[in-house]
Amino acid sequence: MTRDDGKPAVPLLQVKNVAKHYGARVGCTDVSFDLYPGEVMGIVGESGSGKSTLLNSLAGHQPPDRGEVIFDTRADGPVDTVTMSEPERRMLSRTDWAFVHQHARDGLRMSVSAGGNIGERLMAVGNRHYGSIRERAVDWLGRVEISENRIDDRPLAFSGGMQQRLQIARNLVTGPRLVFMDEPTGGLDVSVQARLLDLLRGLVREMGLSAIIVTHDLAVVRLLADRLMVMKDGRVVETGLTDQVLDDPQHSYTQLLVSSVLQV
């Protein structure tokens, strides 16, 4: 890959031989890949295949046992986030990174209003002007299609789809460059899923986000992901362009996965 100015592009995230074990059991092992700016990577696999373990290890929620997760930081260039100091990593996770949980309740403060939820990251990085925080919150509510007059309502009063959209707004407000998503459409009914996917696709393209999306829903990756990684028993069994993997699966497990989807 090359950048617009002709120089070779630096991957935004380089994952090298990441492994995480739970005692003698394998969480995930030997995972390596590069993610370039603006690229969306999908990780699919059945339950227990190590998708979420991998995502949590990448996002710094639990330290991997082995391997490197090198992120191209704005200030210092590529840095291994596994060995960087905790304050730096936490700073990264509320500025340049974002994490969208499967259950919106895990990612939101349920007792704080929608506006406060969106504003939290802004205040965490030092914004101390109420008016401008409020303005940004209104702007972001609009972007995720939540009406402005709900800004002072608590997420408890929101539907599941709205909570999920609010969680996305709360995460994207600081303009992150890398978004981790863990089953972002899980637990939502199909029409709400479709709108959420539409919204996500728009935001990802518009903001030039890079994203890693973990899901077991092949339709989600078909719509959102440029590249696909298939996991089974903690190992990557197949990688490639999304359409290529889904239309011409090589590994037997991928073939099973693709053929298991009900065609309506």
């Binding site: 209003s113 205040m123 109420y130 409020r134």
Partner: peptide
């Protein structure tokens, strides 16, 4: 320990918004 005090302002934000 890490001086992460943004949350304190969330409380004040909630006060003003309500």
């Amino acid at each position: 320990a890490l001086q992460e005090y943004g949350l304190m302002h969330v409380k004040l934000y909630e006060d003003i918004s309500q």
